[in-house]
């Protein structure tokens, strides 16, 4: 997988759903997730209603189903991992199934949101929601430099692969740590240069 696919590229498509203001989508999604996640079990119709609504919005969004389901499936095993713990109690099976349905709907909501909202719109939405500026800046820089960092990591791996002739089956803790350490050193140096670049353009 290319590092470029980390953030949903389908977020840059154009559709009625994509054109909605990000802040509005964010609040709708959060409200829906809260409702679905916290609804009592007797309200079985809530997750189903939400699922129907999501199916409708997915259709309008023109995001390929393959992309949406793919992203859902990436996270799903981790839901199962926690949900399995709920089996070991009274009525375990029904609690397990209810949990699974709820969290799948919730995850799909967030997946759909991120597949229809470009990252810059996220940042504006955070600003509008009066998130402290230090977080907004941190998120913006994180998004910007995650790719740069992953590219560096991939180049380091390629360089090493080019010099090793037999694939190493044994897990190498030191190698992992040195990759991570290198990445951090580069990150620090990068942060220093970014600071210079900010200063040179009048930042106070």
């Amino acid at each position: 997988m290319k590092a470029g696919e980390l953030f949903a590229s389908s977020a840059d498509l154009d559709s009625p759903v994509h054109r909605l203001p990000a802040a509005m989508k964010l609040w709708i999604a959060v409200a829906m997730v809260v409702l679905v996640a916290l609804a009592p079990k007797a309200w079985w119709f809530v997750p189903w209603g939400a699922a129907l609504f999501l199916a409708l919005v997915s259709g309008l969004s023109r995001v390929p189903a393959r992309v949406l389901v793919g992203r859902l499936l990436i996270v799903e095993p981790f839901v199962l991992g926690v949900a399995i713990l709920s089996l070991f109690q009274e009525n375990g099976v029904s609690i397990f199934l209810a949990l699974l349905a709820k969290s799948t709907v919730c995850i799909y909501t967030m997946v759909l949101l991120s597949c229809t909202t470009p990252f810059t719109a996220w940042i504006d939405a955070l600003r509008q929601a009066r998130v402290p500026s230090i977080f907004v800046t941190t998120v913006a820089l994180m998004y910007r430099y995650l790719y740069v960092l992953l590219d560096e990591a991939l180049r380091m791996r390629r360089a090493r692969a080019a010099r090793s002739f037999a694939p190493n089956r044994r897990f190498d803790w030191r190698l992992l740590a040195s990759v991570a350490g290198q990445l951090f050193l580069r990150s620090t140096a990068r942060a220093e240069r970014i600071y210079s670049a900010m200063l040179s353009r009048g930042w106070r």
Binding site: T138, L141, L146, L149, F171, V179, A180, S187
Partner: peptide, 24 residues
């Protein structure tokens, strides 16, 4: 200090990437 401000963002990217490191 303001000079460490960019480090927060770049470190967030680093930790995000670091969470992708798997170990047996």
């Amino acid at each position: 200090p303001p000079s460490r401000m960019p480090l927060l963002g770049v470190s967030a990217a680093f930790l995000f990437a670091a969470q992708m490191l798997n170990f047996p």
